[in-house]
């Protein structure tokens, strides 16, 4: 079960990845886009691999995207949701995973409300573990699909100005994006209410804008984060209407920029709160491209983690360039 994949055994976050590893995932995702355009949207690359999607938090897009990615690679998949499983009977995470491993699985995709859950699990089971979002920590495949979408649209990432707008403090999407973007040489900024900005973020070389107008003036790309509605109840923002009025990304605000700003959103959107419908559906929105790229990126990650034993690869190479 050990692997000498370029990615190692698990994908838990972008923080400790090298730019080379990140670029290799993006490059590998390119040919996988084409697989989803075929008349038969399936390749046998992961035939015989068993993958468990272990979701301790609600998710539609990410879970379905992983499931499509797995099925288009011919893996066998099982979905486990926290409700209606032994988890709701009080079983611990490790016990759940060990029981699954006892049934001879190969990979676990995990979404969990606790930061660090994916790494914790990866250190305790032999299967490959992929983080599909852990608490406020990271959501690496989301950031990878964001990077791929930016690269598709602009032809590069290095030197681009990317601003994350909204609830950066609580956002694992923002955290993974920050790591990925800075590693690939983008200039990164954040913009939102002070209550939702992490303290000391400037020390990471990240610009902070208190006004959305300044961010729009500066950016090539706006990645508009979802405002989680429970933030209002906890007093981080006064009201949703106020938030829209001060930080909402609207066509009127975008018009003031001289450049065409690429608009991204990880979903699900609150139309009329963090983003205006006319922007979300506008010509510079790549929000649905992000969703399409999500499947390709996840196929690449699954494929790279599952494959690759250097000794056999060398043996194959000795046999000649082609067989």
């Amino acid at each position: 079960m050990t692997s000498s994949s370029i990615l190692g055994k698990d994908l838990t976050g972008l923080e400790h990845m090298t730019p080379e590893q990140i670029r290799h995932i993006l490059d590998t995702a390119e040919p996988f886009k084409e697989v989803s355009e075929r008349p038969i949207k399936k390749v046998p690359a992961l035939r015989g691999k068993t993958i468990v999607n272990l979701f301790f938090e609600a998710s539609t897009r990410t879970r379905i995207s992983f499931e499509f990615a797995e099925k288009r690679l011919s893996a066998d998949t099982v979905n486990v949701a926290a409700t209606g499983s032994s988890v709701s009977k009080g079983e611990t995470l490790v016990d759940t995973a060990r029981n699954l491993e006892a049934m001879r699985i190969d990979m676990v995709v995990i979404r969990h409300p606790s930061s660090g859950a994916a790494e914790f699990l990866g250190n305790r089971i032999a299967s490959n573990v992929i983080n599909a979002g852990d608490g406020k920590h990271e959501h690496p495949t989301q950031a990878l699909l964001d990077l791929l979408t930016i690269r598709d649209k602009h032809g590069k990432i290095e030197g681009l100005k990317v601003c994350l707008v909204g609830d950066v403090l609580h956002s694992r999407v923002a955290r993974s994006n920050l790591w990925g973007l800075t590693k690939l040489g983008a200039e990164v900024a954040v913009c939102g209410p002070w209550t939702l900005m992490p303290r000391g973020i400037e020390e990471l070389g990240v610009k902070v804008f208190g006004r959305i107008e300044e961010a729009i003036e500066w950016a090539d790309v706006l990645n508009v984060l979802r405002l989680q509605l429970e933030r209002m109840e906890k007093g981080f923002i006064p009201s949703l209407r106020e938030y829209y009025r001060v930080f909402g990304v609207t066509p009127e605000r975008l018009e003031r920029s001289r450049r065409a700003i690429t608009i991204m959103h990880p979903g699900p959107m609150n139309r009329g709160v963090e983003i205006d419908s006319r922007v979300a559906d506008g010509p510079h929105s790549v929000i649905l491209d992000q969703v399409t790229n999500g499947v390709a990126v996840r196929m690449a990650v699954l494929y790279l983690l599952a494959g690759g034993r250097a000794d056999l690869a060398d043996a194959a190479k000795r046999g000649g360039a082609s067989e």
Partner: peptide, 15 residues
């Protein structure tokens, strides 16, 4: 993606 041995594709396969 159609090879019969995933193990031989190497740690950094290029597709």
């Amino acid at each position: 993606l159609y090879r019969d041995d995933l193990g031989t594709v190497g740690p950094k396969p290029v597709i």
